[in-house]
Design a binder for these strands. Structure first.
Lengths: 72, 72
DNA sequence: TAAAAAAGAGCTGTATAATGCACTTTGCAG
DNA sequence: CTGCAAAGTGCATTATACAGCTCTTTTTTA
């Protein structure tokens, strides 16, 4: 996943779960300002921030080996 | 994957590929110092840094929905 | 369509990620 | 052993992620 896609995925997931930015910020421990900036496409979150958000959204950050064939 | 596991995976992957920290730093555009610290377990890399490293190592950072059952 | 809620933006301070340089330690080959 | 290459550490600087506060804009909903 490229950069923007990861951010977009987080945002979409939050929306699907019907959680407000404010709630997610509180639940995850990430500052509201930080979350807003992220979703606005400005920023370069740290792994810790990503994980805090993903955790609450029932997601997980992972690293996988890229395959030659598109595994779509 | 939890935090340390991601870092460990990167390091192991680098070793499997027989790439030195120096090479990886150059190839990825990440500073050598940064890479050393990361692998040493100190730090909290940004998504951009992670992706630059993963890219060179033939890996990819992804976000996936956590399933209830262990999908091990 | 007005009120309320959510999202986004400016301003700003603090913490720390990223980086280079020089030096030490470790691991391996000769 | 000895020497070289790779890995790890201390120090210092710069850039920027994180954060809160306040205000504006957009979206929802009553």
């Amino acid at each position: 996943m490229h950069f923007a896609e990861i951010i977009k995925t987080l945002k979409e997931r939050r929306e699907v779960l019907n959680v407000t930015q404010e709630n997610l910020a509180e639940l995850s421990g990430v500052g509201l300002r930080t979350l807003k900036q992220l979703e606005g496409g400005k920023g370069n979150p740290t792994l810790l921030t990503l994980q805090k958000l993903a955790e609450v959204l029932g997601m997980e950050v992972c690293l996988k080996i890229r395959t030659i064939t598109s595994d779509k």
